[in-house]
Design a protein around this nucleic acid. Structure first.
Lengths: 166, 166
DNA sequence: ACTAAGTAGCTTAGTGCTAAGTTATCGCCA
DNA sequence: TGGCGATAACTTAGCACTAAGCTACTTAGT
């Protein structure tokens, strides 16, 4: 591992060590501090990439969930809200906007009159098919800084950490 | 590395591989997907930990920035907003709330009448000194799932990745 | 000294979310 | 068959943020 210059997260750790030496080792703080910052920085880049297609990240997530569910690209707001860790109220708003843009259509569920199905329109499918490739390119560009072996190793460590965080 | 069961992020990758085999390797998508989810899950846990002290994460961040800046625990809203990646408008709101709770005080800057200084009150300092320890405990509990060597390795990989993401 | 540009904090309008509550519908069980 | 709890989508109120713009003040240029 190449030696790197101190970053902003290191500087925060240094401040705490000076002010509160009793806290002990701060590796945990530094790990999660970097995770927050990476999520934020890459999130902004993704937002930018999706912006080229006229949608935001929230809307992309809805379209992507429908797309990867396979034909006929149809899910209920309830299913979408569960997958995307959102309330149904929040999903109503996202679907409203996507419907207005013509990227999804709402259709009644023939078996349950309480329920609705959100379906990807052909325009929505084409847009999400392009956007997912653009987003992946951004992610690959960032991860590409690591060697293939390091990237794979990182993936495994993160899988274990996510399991612990749940 | 112990073999682990498939998680939700793996399931998403599997769906994309079925629907869009042309996308190729999805390691990058899975890495950042896990980073988002870890940030979210650990963020919720931290929120809970700080909630015991009657503050949220945003307020904690302000108090912590003042605390680790050292005596006399005094910074301008502008400095705080820069450190916390917030607009000055957002900072006004956080300081309003903290001032109302008696955890910080606003005082005029004697050298620049445009400027204000936010200072930690004794109550604010005591609260943040306890809260930072509680938060660190949460972070250590999650990171503790990894071996000390793996944790250190993860820290180094994330440092490099954050540098790439900037 | 006077003016123009820049800066600090705050205010306002708009966004996107949650939590709680509403309405319509479903499905179970006496 | 009738009634009751559960459920789906939506609505509303409130929250925390951003972007843009305001006011008061400072600083640099002449």
């Amino acid at each position: 591992m190449r030696v790197m210059h101190k970053d902003r997260v290191d500087a925060i750790g240094d401040q705490w060590r000076r002010e509160r030496p009793d806290l002990g080792d701060l590796l945990a703080m530094e790990v999660f501090g970097r995770i927050y910052r990476i999520a934020d920085a890459v999130g902004n880049r993704m937002e930018e990439a999706y912006g080229c297609f006229g949608i935001g990240r929230g809307e992309f997530d809805v379209l992507a969930t429908l797309r990867r569910s396979g034909e006929p690209y149809r899910l209920t707001p309830k299913q979408l809200a569960g997958t995307l860790m959102l309330t149904t109220g929040g999903m109503t708003g996202r679907l409203d906007k996507l419907e207005k843009s013509g990227l999804i259509a709402r259709e009644p569920d023939p078996d349950d009159r309480r329920s609705v199905r959100a379906r990807l329109t052909p325009e929505g499918r084409e847009l999400v098919d392009n956007a997912v490739a653009a987003g992946l390119e951004v992610q690959r560009a960032v991860l590409g800084r690591l060697s293939p072996d390091d990237a794979k190793l990182l993936g495994n460590l993160l899988r274990e950490l996510l399991d612990a965080a749940r």
